[in-house]
Amino acid sequence: MHARIRVAAVAAAAIGALTMTACDTGSTVVDKPEENAAAKADSGKDAKKGKSPEVAKVGDTLTLKGFEDGSQLDVTVVKIADPGKSANEFTEPDAGKRFVGVQFQLVNTGKAVYSDSPSNGAQVADSEGQQFDSTFADITAGPSMSSSLKLKPGAKGLGWIVFEVPKASKIGAVQFTMDSGFADQTGEWKLK
């Protein structure tokens, strides 16, 4: 009987430590991309030099850090497919819902190997503030993002992550967080 109490106490302490750690991390949202080098080179206007866009939009790249020292990605929302059409007759959205696809490009700009399931850290949010996690589905827009992506420093991954959302929802933002959604920084892209 005492062994069970001791195990329960250890488990409770571990959960408490994880909860305190999660609460104390001070998570931040990154939504301001840096001006890319090509845009700087093409810009002949003094007023635009050195200015970054107000918020990230489709096509912009955000640099995000993970928990592990040296863990960093440049994340780009490349395209949006809304609605996304199922790539097969076996996977369809539930009644009253639709698929929305987001094509992400992940480039490992850190010193550590990136190994994760990117879909675990991706979400979309509608104009009402409702957030939707990814779902397992393939769409006709293109190949899905690998569910077990491993990138050495300098390598990149490209693929679609699919979300199932209510037909009436107007998607207003895309979010991505490293470490299956548990890292301190969350990238956010506005859609209009």
Score class of each variant (00 low, 15 high):
Arg4Tyr: 10
Ile5Lys: 12
Ala11Met: 13
Ala11Leu: 15
Ala12Pro: 07
Ala12Val: 15
Ala12Gln: 08
Ala12Trp: 08
Ala12Phe: 12
Ala13Met: 13
Ile15Met: 12
Gly16Phe: 09
Ala17Pro: 02
Ala17Phe: 10
Leu18Gly: 15
Met20Phe: 13
Ala22Ile: 04
Cys23Ala: 15
Ser27Asp: 14
Val29Tyr: 09
Asp31Pro: 00
Asp31Ser: 14
Lys32Pro: 00
Pro33Arg: 06
Pro33Lys: 06
Glu35His: 06
Ala37His: 06
Ala37Pro: 00
Ala38Ser: 07
Ala38Trp: 06
Ala39Ser: 11
Lys40Gly: 00
Asp42Gln: 09
Gly44Leu: 13
Lys45Phe: 10
Ala47Pro: 00
Lys48Thr: 12
Lys48Ala: 13
Lys49Leu: 12
Ser52His: 13
Pro53His: 07
Pro53Arg: 10
Val58Ala: 09
Gly59Arg: 07
Gly59Lys: 07
Leu62Glu: 00
Thr63Arg: 08
Gly66His: 02
Phe67Ser: 13
Ser71Thr: 08
Ser71Pro: 00
Leu73Pro: 00
Leu73Met: 11
Thr76Ser: 08
Val77Pro: 01
Val78Ile: 11
Val78Ala: 11
Ile80Gln: 02
Ile80Asp: 01
Ala81Lys: 03
Pro83His: 05
Lys85Ala: 11
Ala87Gln: 06
Asn88Ile: 04
Asn88Pro: 03
Thr91Pro: 00
Glu92Arg: 10
Asp94Trp: 00
Phe99Val: 05
Val100Met: 08
Val102Ser: 05
Gln103Leu: 11
Phe104Ile: 06
Gln105Pro: 04
Val107Glu: 10
Asn108Glu: 05
Thr109Arg: 07
Gly110Trp: 02
Gly110Glu: 02
Lys111Phe: 03
Ala112Val: 10
Val113Cys: 02
Tyr114Trp: 14
Tyr114Val: 14
Ser115Gly: 11
Ser115Trp: 14
Ser115Ala: 15
Asp116Asn: 15
Asp116Gly: 09
Ser119Cys: 11
Ser119Leu: 08
Gly121Lys: 07
Gln123Asp: 10
Gln123His: 11
Val124Gln: 05
Ala125Lys: 11
Asp126Met: 09
Ser127Glu: 12
Ser127Lys: 12
Gln130Pro: 00
Gln131Trp: 00
Phe132His: 10
Ser134Cys: 07
Ser134Asn: 10
Thr135Met: 08
Ala137Trp: 04
Ala137Ile: 08
Ala141Asn: 02
Gly142Asp: 02
Gly142Pro: 03
Ser144Trp: 00
Ser148Thr: 08
Leu149Ile: 06
Lys150Cys: 00
Pro153Met: 06
Gly154Glu: 09
Gly157Ile: 04
Gly157His: 05
Gly157Met: 06
Gly157Phe: 04
Leu158Arg: 12
Leu158His: 01
Gly159Trp: 01
Ile161Arg: 02
Val162Arg: 01
Val165His: 05
Pro166Ala: 09
Pro166Thr: 10
Lys167Ile: 12
Ala168Trp: 02
Ala168Ser: 15
Lys170Val: 15
Ile171Lys: 01
Ile171Arg: 01
Phe176His: 10
Thr177Asn: 06
Met178Gly: 02
Gly181Ser: 08
Phe182Thr: 15
Asp184Lys: 15
Thr186Pro: 05
Thr186Gly: 03
Trp189Ser: 03
Trp189Ile: 06
Trp189Gln: 03
Lys192Thr: 14
